[in-house]
Design a protein around this nucleic acid. Sequence first.
DNA 1: TTGAAAGCGCTAACAC
DNA 2: GTGTTAGCGCTTTCAA
Lengths: 342, 342
Amino acid sequence: MNDTGEAPALRPHARPTLRQVAAEAGVSLKTASRVLNGHPHVTEATAARVRQASDRLGFRLNRIARELRSGATSTSVGLIISDLANPFYARLARGAERVLRDAGLQLITTSTDEDPDQERSLVDELLERRVRALLLVPSGDDHGYLENEGRRTPVVFLDRPPVHLGADTVLVDSRAGAALAVEHLLAAGHRRIGFLGDLSRLATHRERMAGFAGAMAAAGVTGWERYVRSDSHDMASARLRTAELLALDPPPTALFTTNNLNTAGALRALVGRADPPALIGFDDFDLADVLGVTVIGHDPEKMGRIAADMVLSRLGGDSSDARCVILPTRLVPRGSGERPPR
Amino acid sequence: MNDTGEAPALRPHARPTLRQVAAEAGVSLKTASRVLNGHPHVTEATAARVRQASDRLGFRLNRIARELRSGATSTSVGLIISDLANPFYARLARGAERVLRDAGLQLITTSTDEDPDQERSLVDELLERRVRALLLVPSGDDHGYLENEGRRTPVVFLDRPPVHLGADTVLVDSRAGAALAVEHLLAAGHRRIGFLGDLSRLATHRERMAGFAGAMAAAGVTGWERYVRSDSHDMASARLRTAELLALDPPPTALFTTNNLNTAGALRALVGRADPPALIGFDDFDLADVLGVTVIGHDPEKMGRIAADMVLSRLGGDSSDARCVILPTRLVPRGSGERPPR
DNA sequence: TTGAAAGCGCTAACAC
DNA sequence: GTGTTAGCGCTTTCAA
């Protein structure tokens, strides 16, 4: 029971416990627990007393204790992406969050800044927190370290496949998307097509490169290697590389940029040019319609939703083999990709 | 000790405990704990044995148990925003995450979709998780319910001030920013200036409205109420409202849009018009430079960082009165705001 | 319908 | 340098 009639001083983190609520209400610990968890078999009168005591004390159930007692597992899921402020990942996170929230799970989102070491330490940290599952946009190039973990904690890879590990994966069809873009440009008569790529070590880059190269080869175009620039992972360097490409002689008559950041960089380099090359970008983005930028569009939010669904299915007991879902892309013509070669 | 020499079946969530590691290494629980937490006073030989046992068993410390034992407080901080996919909030989240991560805290980010009920239930949930602090972009219009919580768990409000509650707050100078925009337009000779506002119940809206009205009044302009449209919280309705404004007779010669979504909507409505009105938008955004859109810029990432710093200072014991930081805005002229009246 | 006792996995306090 | 004991706040038996 309360030792004095006065309200206790509210020191930070000095929260009342269930035991104190029970004492205040004059019932046992277990009864108080039942009431505050909405379990049956309690008289309404008793329940009311407990609730009053709880409110009076400003009580809140401690989920940490609850989770420890009931299995030492949390009710959260970890999401590791490279950068929260990239709209692509922000959308992906939103899709995942909504599905998980409806299932009573909370999403803990963290960013690696594309650093493989950071990836490992975040994975460690989240596993220590006993997240129920992990959603991972990998930066590293070896995920063998998850081999044993995967049997205990479901792991779903997003946007990029795992290396040296079999695990559920959701990807976008990078190769086909890139081919789509190039074929569109080739059909309009372009032959000198610039390629602006992300970090070469990323699987998405390699696939988009492969799609590009394949389509060029199929059309019998040679010498395209001259117009390839890779490893630009931010707008500034994309802008620079674009300027480089346009300074070549002869310059490319079209550009294919392999993600939203590179597209944004290229657009900046093209501002104010009288005769801009045609441009198609991988990833749709805000205001691409206003800018009239033709893109290879897909649905990052759906990617997040599907990954979250996979997690839920694994948590529901599905122990079938690892699956890989590949989401389709589509060409969204808006003008920039339809400019003819000069 | 191990009951058999064989590896145990890896059932999901059947993780080894510290006790098992200790047994496997032939040391006490406490010694194992010391080693795996990097505490001193352990022989290197003993430490090595423990680490080997830990690796062999695939052990990972259970933070849930640790946190329960040491104060029943987690090492995470909750962030409640309205929409992760809005670049403004994504940037804010990134700023906060970086500061907190450096302090060893993890950020749990959740979205309310601007629903006050959702806000309350997310606050409840995060407090049950015993987050160390709460960063809140409020949707509700009464935060009295946090009165007592605030003494136990630091709460910092972002972007919008608390109502019926004193609490640390970080805002952007909405009123001054709006005035800046309007004065810029007035100076260029505009008199009929359209105003495209967000939900009227939001403080940011009201402040920007006040800044707008004040600047108009100071310039002796009357009849501007006709060109005000509020409560548009998505691009589609912003676009519609812009079209409405432009259909008035006489139409406005300039527009002031009060946030990034409204600016995007207005831009869509202006596409293809031969004689677009001047346009200034509150909030900077990606590619605004390419589009030549004049904006009232500020720094959302900094807002996140400052809020996180406030949290850290409160957690460090600072119990001074609630503070309010107001971040400055600046006019970034890029062309659209410099179009003369027709 | 209610309660008493045990214990989740770990760390803090205090031996030795 | 290492071990023993107690207990964080809750839920889960099991008994009344």
